[in-house]
Design a protein around this nucleic acid. Sequence first.
RNA 1: GGACCAUUAGCUCAGCUGGAUAGAGCGCUGCCCUCCGAAGGCAGAGGCCAGAGGUUCGAAUCCUCUAUGGUCCGCCA
Length: 580
Amino acid sequence: MNLFADIRALVLTNLAAMVEAGELPADLATQNVTVEPPRDAAHGDMATNAAMVLAKPAKMKPRDIAEVLAKRLAEDDRITSAEVAGPGFLNLRLAPVVWQGVVGAVLEAGTDFGRSDLGAGKKVNVEYVSANPTGPLHVGHTRGAVFGDALASLLDFSGHDVTREYYINDGGAQVDVLARSVYLRYLEAHGQEVAFEDGTYPGDYLIGVGEQLKAKVGDALVGKGEQFWLAEVREFATDAMMDLIRDDLSALGVKMDVFYSEKSLYGTGRIEAALDDLRSKGLIYEGVLEPPKGKKPEGWEPREQTLFKSTDHGDDVDRPVMKSDGAWTYFAPDIAYHYDKIQRGFDALIDVLGADHGGYVKRMKAAVSALSDGKVPLDIKLTQLVKLFKDGQEFKMSKRAGTFVTLRDVVDEVGPGVTRFMMLTRKNDAMFDFDLDAALEQSKENPVFYVQYAHARVTSVLRKANEAGVAVDHATLAGADLSKLDHEAELALAAKLAEWPRLVETAARTNEPHRVAFYLYDLAGVFHGLWNRGNELPELRFLQDDTATSQAKIALARASAVVIAAGLGILGVEPAEELR
RNA sequence: GGACCAUUAGCUCAGCUGGAUAGAGCGCUGCCCUCCGAAGGCAGAGGCCAGAGGUUCGAAUCCUCUAUGGUCCGCCA
């Protein structure tokens, strides 16, 4: 149920009736007609721009159209008043029974309230995290993980068939570096003195891996040349790193459907197949790139390479897929990987990447556009940097990794729920200063607490009602006489709940899960507002002398908790039953 | 030199893809807690939506240019 969609349908029906009655010309385009909550509540419950949108094509004055439409709409039981305002807005006030009905609908649907079929079962692949398997996840990955996971849940909630996927970059030079680093730790485990030079990973997290390797192979690899051990150690080390990463993800509550290995693209003809596809479209050629202007890279010299003609699909320059020495660039397996996603039948692809991959967006979109003949849209969401603050200072050091703050550091500080919620209190493409102390504070300043507190208050009301002998089981509340909810403050809370389905659709359409977090904060604010007014107006308290009245009010509270739980569910946060 | 992102109240940020008098939290000012639902509440001040053009009934939102900040730009992934 989506109240705004219902009322919009009502508006469209009446517009059609006006055409029928000769009050409007036929064949008017109505797709721009909207029904939305007005910014200023004084304007009413809902507003439609229908008259203004149609005025020009109908060659009529907006206010004239609005007058007629108002008269017709007012005949519907759900509408108590329809007033023309401003340049031609039509402000609608809805009957209390409509808002009361929202409460009933929430209780009936439970946390499925707001689920929509917007996605129509479309298969969407959301790729996120995809950190190199060379160490533990750090803060930047954490933001990507939270964002991607919440986005996936949001799309699922809005009717998409979602696959959560992690691309393991286990095919490039960085895993050789990893293997060499682990080998050094392995020698160390055998009591040798080793030096970590530039180009190796010195982090402590590899010590254990070196010891495990020793436990597995003994001294079989000691003193051998790289050609004897590189492949074996590489596999051992990347497996160990992926275990580490999986543990990190699960500490955050992220669960992937698919882990896709880059390595599996090599030697299997899949890269070649993807490039053949592009070649057959005339998009692969041998050529020489111009040097970047302004700044001349040192030692730049013109070189012939195999290039993808990405400029045909909106990129600024063509991109190399093969280096001059005949090896693939990193771009080639990425093309093959996305080719594979397309062949797996996804209707839409989403990549969640760190902002440092910004330069990569156009070429990847170009590749997907070319490979799918423009049929599969690829949306790339970039997550900006996160700066952590603790005790008023930037929080930089990690006990584990030595050089960067890990996901574990953050989760250990504030817990997975707070981490997830806080990471979504900012748009993905805005930088984020994350204050760890503020995230644990119990005040209105802290959005996580504020939302959780609202949920906990409802739990507390239910408990108190039980103690007072008022039945508040699900069936009783669902059958409560909601017409007793007649105060403006109560109806306002119900109206806020009515926005939830609409918000889900907007957030899903824009791939912006942060909107859910902001909505929850808003909703909690309205709930707390009602609660607080109970201080001065005893009739607004949830527990009343009259059982039926209590049950109606508690139904409203319960409905609020249900929507909060649904929203937190999308964000991957457990709702709190009580706060201590 | 170019690409992408950002720029909204003193500070940190939203702004529902073009709607009415631009919102929230913090901070600031004033009022309110013997007790009954104050881990607070109510009210107020505070804005050239970075700047300049354009598009139209209507722009913080779309287009162009400029400024500032960030990220990136073959032989790393």
